[in-house]
Design a protein around this nucleic acid. Sequence first.
DNA 1: ATCAAGATTACCT
DNA 2: GGTAATCTTGATA
Length: 210
Amino acid sequence: MSEFIPTLEFLTLNKLTPSFYKRDTLIVAKDLLNKFFVRKLNDSFCILKIVEVEAYVGNCDQAAHSFIGQTQRNNVMFQTGGQLYVYFTYGMHYCLNVVTSTEGIGDAVLIRAMQPLNCFDILSLNRFNTKEPTHQQIKNLANGPAKICQALNISKNENGIDLQSDFIFLSNNKLLLPEEIIQTKRIGIKKSVDLPWRFYIKNNPYISKK
DNA sequence: ATCAAGATTACCT
DNA sequence: GGTAATCTTGATA
């Protein structure tokens, strides 16, 4: 099964608009699977397919950064959908979220894993300091939330960026069938651990963890 | 001013 | 499977 690699024209024509993000967060989370993430680096458009996400919901989810209310750090989560929320954690890692919902109550979807479709040399240089990744390294380019940010050179500078940008945006792709989506509990949290708000593409080899 | 926790990763046994 | 690395943030005094 070979991957469809869209052209820049296709990606631009099918760019996701604010109406996509300004919906119920759990629906958006599920719909984000299989979408294209586009990031311009060194005059190249890096294209990756989203294969794993987690939803975080401000007013009822103790694991969400926004549960404590609006602060300097989580400020962007309270915007009304279609922005990038980037946070720093463990003293060394950045993670990337998509802000959702119309409510401005602090909802976002964490992108946990992506499947790179092109620009392997650029991503690999950022991750492993080599332009020629091994097969094992290719699988490890973006199969974790902090790996994504390292591979795509995303940090505090990108926090709050609007996803209507021409340099970072998401693009549509076909919806998955329900049987192609696995829903489970989220990973790496200590609060609200039983909420089943992690979604990933069944049998995709670029998932962060089974 | 001080402190504990953290939406992780890489490397070790 | 276990854990060190590393530092910002938000809470408390």
